[in-house]
Design a binder for these strands. Structure first.
Lengths: 179, 179
DNA sequence: TAGTTTGTTTAGTAAAAACTAAATAAACTA
DNA sequence: TAGTTTATTTAGTTTTTACTAAACAAACTA
């Protein structure tokens, strides 16, 4: 009965993380799986996760891999046991850095590059007569955007370079901003 | 012909922003509409946006409203003209603050609240005998998560409270983090 | 070897989201 | 008033995405 109670609370928590997950445009399953792992004192096998979440083996298999890519869970192998086991990363600052690092590979960078190409295209073009103002306007706008992205990219680069990031780090930033 | 060239470049740029948009889990249309407005020296009416993007009036009508909610575009009314006109916000730091502010209303906060409820549920419950360690483990885990969220929330609160935010602000943060 | 137990991939389905076309509403105009 | 011109809403379609069920593959076991 007390166990049931705990399970109920866990289930509510899982629902909450599912919603957060889909708020960020991710599948609910990711939130649910992470929640189950996060509240489990011991590593869980794929089939155990199936049992606790109700998703199929295939779904868990792929979901758990994307969670691992994000740095939110880690795969473990026990000796003499063919099963894989999964645990949740509980240091969220680590997760933030891991996700920010992931940006380099991603589709996102290809899109960013296309913005940069636009800027080059605009700059290398000889000024036209008829629509010179249009060209200049576009040039300035895209240059501003590029500068914003560069600035942001620097910030991310510095963050990912931090050997440690924790509450204290954030609080120092807050103190700086408050002035 | 030179005009055609400029249009081609604009179209590439628009494609780029569309991809960025969908990378963040948003409809491509949002990126496309913003791109068109961002590169337009003058405010555009709804029908002009329809012409430049190829989406239907209905789609533009709703998309432009969500863009406005995010602070990415602004609606303008010209006197003696019944049409609405739209311009892009070009200060991206403003946009960041605007989006961060929007968090208060959102579904996101309801989900966060449910995490907090979980914590309360766990803490108010009298310790059980059989599964005391399970309760404690869950309690600690959820408390840690809550503390992370609180910390982040403070940061966001400070950022939105900033009267101005710009490249310089970011650079100061970078300088702080580098030490 | 054949038989288990695991994880992954694939093909198909169900559900959700983005979008279109058209009806409606609202504000003006002649 | 009836007729235009605009924006919004609605109902339905298309497209995309998440997921299931089942086949497959790989690693072990008897």
């Amino acid at each position: 009965m007390s166990t049931t109670e705990l399970e109920t609370i866990k289930s509510n928590f899982t629902q909450g993380l599912s919603q957060i997950s889909q708020f960020w445009g991710l599948p609910k399953s990711l939130g649910a799986i992470f929640a189950v792992l996060y509240l489990s004192p011991n590593a869980l096998s794929l089939n155990e996760i199936v049992g606790k979440t109700g998703f199929t083996k295939g779904a868990i298999s792929t979901s758990v891999r994307t969670l691992a890519r994000m740095g939110l869970v880690h795969r473990q192998s026990k000796l003499g046991d063919r099963k894989d086991y999964y645990i949740a990363e509980s240091d969220f600052y680590k997760v933030v850095r891991s996700i920010l690092k992931g940006r380099e590979n991603s589709e996102f960078n290809r899109a960013l590059a296309s913005v940069q190409e636009t800027l080059v295209d605009l700059q290398t073009n000889p000024n036209q007569e008829g629509d010179a103002e249009d060209w200049d306007f576009a040039k300035n706008r895209v240059a501003e955007m590029q500068s914003f992205f560069d600035n942001l990219d620097n910030l991310v680069r510095v963050i990912t370079a931090l050997e440690t990031m924790n509450q204290n780090t954030v609080q120092k930033v807050i103190a700086l901003l408050k002035k």
